[in-house]
Design a protein around this nucleic acid. Structure first.
Length: 307
RNA sequence: GGCGGCGUGGCCGAGUGGCUCAGGCAAGGGUCUGCAAAACCCUCUACCCCGGUUCAAUUCCGGGCGCCGCCU
């Protein structure tokens, strides 16, 4: 059972139970775990990201956890690069990569690539941001001129993507839409079995509730406190992630703990809904309830048995 | 018991004699090619009850009920 170029994706909404399932799979199939969670790549952010514990990580090799500091840049392209390297390494050891996480864009970037283009150009983004600030609607109008297809797809308020479109057009001299249609997620990395874990709405809601409470009654406040002590405060985007912002409010005396628990539960639930919406669009994925761990194992087995 | 105020959609909250009748939050759905735990979009539930005035009332008038405040 030393799979050529095959790999497994264990996706699903937060708190679905991905970590545990993945761990069991890697023990059983000789796998190594690769993180696909946009926040678990950061060092010092453990409790709030529900990162697997060091004990769990010592059972089988884990990759792409703790790769950058909270004030370092990281994005989908970085992820794809790190991810590919990790997968190649795992294959070279004759083992099975098991990619676990809930960041849809990262999973897509890893399995199907990204169009070849410029990374974030911070200075340019700042200028564009300011331009829109001073002249609302400017980005949309500009975009309509340089890249009509993209402009047609984007809502005029979608600053993030408008800025990206202009950034690409300006730095490459070619519209983003052309880059995209040329690429059209055409890359394929090995052969993948994509599993989406979803325990059902009721159970998921309960798990999210329990986890939120656990985090705030457990070590999340301390974690945020020590992040701040290291100089990582709320001005950093990652420190405004779900859980971290709520904990920050408590530390700043704006909320009491119960309030924070309520809010955290709410935003986590909303996040989970968004994740589910993303995964619903992944047509090749198979959906499994994590309580049915036999089914998960059977699917993997069948996948590996296939030619 | 008297006087005054209020009663708007799951919640908060503006407002108007008629013209899909604000906004926010929550909820649901969706989008997503280098910040994605982000960003953005769409949708939904109203005017406490009864009667009156009016071409037309959630909006005006009367009564009822309920809530709040003050007074005796």
């Amino acid at each position: 059972m030393s799979p050529d170029d095959r790999w497994i994706v264990v996706a699903g909404p937060t708190a679905a139970g991905k970590t545990e399932v993945a761990l069991r799979l890697s023990e059983r199939f000789g796998g190594e775990i690769v993180n696909a969670d946009s926040r678990q790549v950061y060092r010092h952010m453990d409790v709030g990201t529900a990162k697997p514990t060091l004990a769990e990580r010592s059972i089988v090799p884990h990759h792409l956890f703790d790769v950058v500091d909270p004030d370092e840049h990281f994005d989908a392209a970085c992820y794809r690069d790190h991810g590919r390297t990790a997968l190649r390494g795992i294959w070279s050891r004759g083992r099975l990569p098991i990619v676990v996480g809930g960041t849809g864009l990262y999973l897509r970037a890893l399995s199907r690539g990204l169009f070849r283009g410029p990374g974030a150009v911070a200075a340019l983004r700042r200028v564009l941001e300011q331009l829109e600030e001073d002249h609302p609607g400017m980005l949309a109008r500009w975009c309509r001129r340089v890249d009509p297809p993209i402009a047609a797809r984007l809502h005029p308020h979608d600053r993030v993507r408008l800025i990206r479109a202009l950034e690409v057009a300006i730095t490459t001299g070619e519209p983003l839409s052309r880059h995209q249609s040329r690429h059209s997620f055409g890359e394929r990395l090995g052969t993948v079995l994509e599993i989406v874990l979803h325990p059902g709405d009721e159970v998921l809601a309960r798990k999210i509730d329990a986890r939120s409470r656990g985090m705030l009654e457990g070590g999340l406040l301390d974690e945020v406190r020590s992040l701040r002590a290291r100089g990582y405060g709320p001005e950093l985007r990652v420190l405004r992630s779900i859980g971290y912002r709520e904990a920050g409010r408590v530390l700043d005396g704006e909320w009491d703990r119960d309030q924070a628990i309520t809010e955290l539960t709410r935003s986590t639930w909303r996040f989970a809904r968004r994740q589910l919406a993303w995964f619903r669009g992944e047509r090749e994925a198979i959906w499994i309830d994590p309580v049915d761990s036999d089914r998960v194992a059977r699917e993997v087995e069948a996948f590996l048995a296939r030619g």
